[in-house]
Simulated assay, not measured.
Amino acid sequence: MNIYDKRQIKCSICGKFIGEIDVDAKIIFPLCKICKKREKNTIKKGISKILVPIDETKKSIKALDAAIYFGKHLGASITLLNVIPVAYMTTMSFQKMLKEMTHEGAKNIEKAKAYCQKKNTLPKYKIVRGDEPVEIVKFAKKHDFDLIVMGSSGKGVLKEIAFGSVSNYVMNNTKIPVVTPS
């Protein structure tokens, strides 16, 4: 047997050396014992909790449609999240504006709940205050969500460069999969 008849195999996830195989043999997705165990646990666990950040946009409703579809087919629960942006001022006009925004957030939640009930789905819901993208990431991590379904901003390239995108921030700052239906 020639040493050139064999080639080394490494785990496709962690890169750990697994062993050697014949040069002609093919392995599509080699895994070490640890990574194989993790994969099995992930497959068993599946998706059981879906987070849907909502606002008054049409893209938010598209995201809610996708979440309802996933929820029904995967047997997952849906939680609606509305984030009320809070600035660091304490004037009376700010208090009035905050109350108005809280009322608007509650209206958004009620619309989304009614939409879900038309589709025979009963979602949970939560309204929080803070910076939108940061609060979405914190809430998803704290409550162990398996999937985040959210609308993309649709602001356009220039506005997104200047102000940033909530969906872009969430995608880049969480390990939870994020789906943004178009």
Rank of each mutant, 00 (worst) to 15 (best):
Y115M: 07
D131L: 08
R7W: 02
N108L: 00
I18H: 02
R129N: 11
Y69K: 07
Y115P: 05
E104K: 14
C11Q: 04
A76N: 09
F139N: 05
T121Q: 12
N41H: 07
K99H: 10
K59C: 01
V137M: 07
K36E: 09
A112S: 15
Q117H: 11
V83R: 07
Y88I: 13
E20H: 09
G19C: 06
K26M: 05
A63P: 02
T42D: 09
S152E: 09
E135Q: 12
I34V: 11
M89P: 00
D144R: 12
I148V: 12
I21E: 06
I61T: 15
K113N: 11
S77F: 04
E132I: 14
L64R: 01
K40N: 12
I61A: 07
G105L: 03
I54F: 02
T102Q: 14
I18F: 01
V52K: 01
K36W: 00
G19I: 07
L81P: 12
E132F: 01
C116T: 04
M89I: 15
V86K: 15
Y115F: 15
D131C: 00
P133G: 13
T79F: 07
S12W: 01
L51W: 02
A25W: 05
L98H: 07
A63N: 02
I34Q: 10
M92N: 12
G105Q: 00
I136D: 03
I54V: 15
K59F: 07
G71E: 01
E110T: 11
Q117Y: 09
T90S: 13
I54E: 02
V128P: 04
N120T: 10
K111Q: 11
K138Y: 08
I136H: 06
K96G: 04
S152H: 13
S153A: 10
D146S: 01
I109T: 07
K37I: 09
A114G: 09
I127P: 06
I78N: 04
A63F: 01
L147W: 07
K26P: 00
V83Y: 06
S12L: 08
K99M: 05
K118A: 12
M92L: 10
T79G: 07
I34S: 14
L80T: 08
E100K: 14
P123V: 07
T57P: 00
M101Y: 09
R129E: 14
C11F: 08
I9R: 00
K44R: 15
D144Y: 10
A76H: 05
V149Q: 03
K126W: 02
I18Y: 06
K111R: 15
L98G: 03
Y125A: 13
I18C: 03
V83S: 08
D65W: 00
F139I: 03
R38N: 14
I28C: 06
H143A: 08
A112H: 04
K33R: 15
T79A: 06
P133R: 12
I47N: 03
D65H: 03
C116P: 05
E110I: 05
P30D: 11
K142M: 09
E135A: 11
K44G: 06
G130R: 08
I13T: 03
C14E: 08
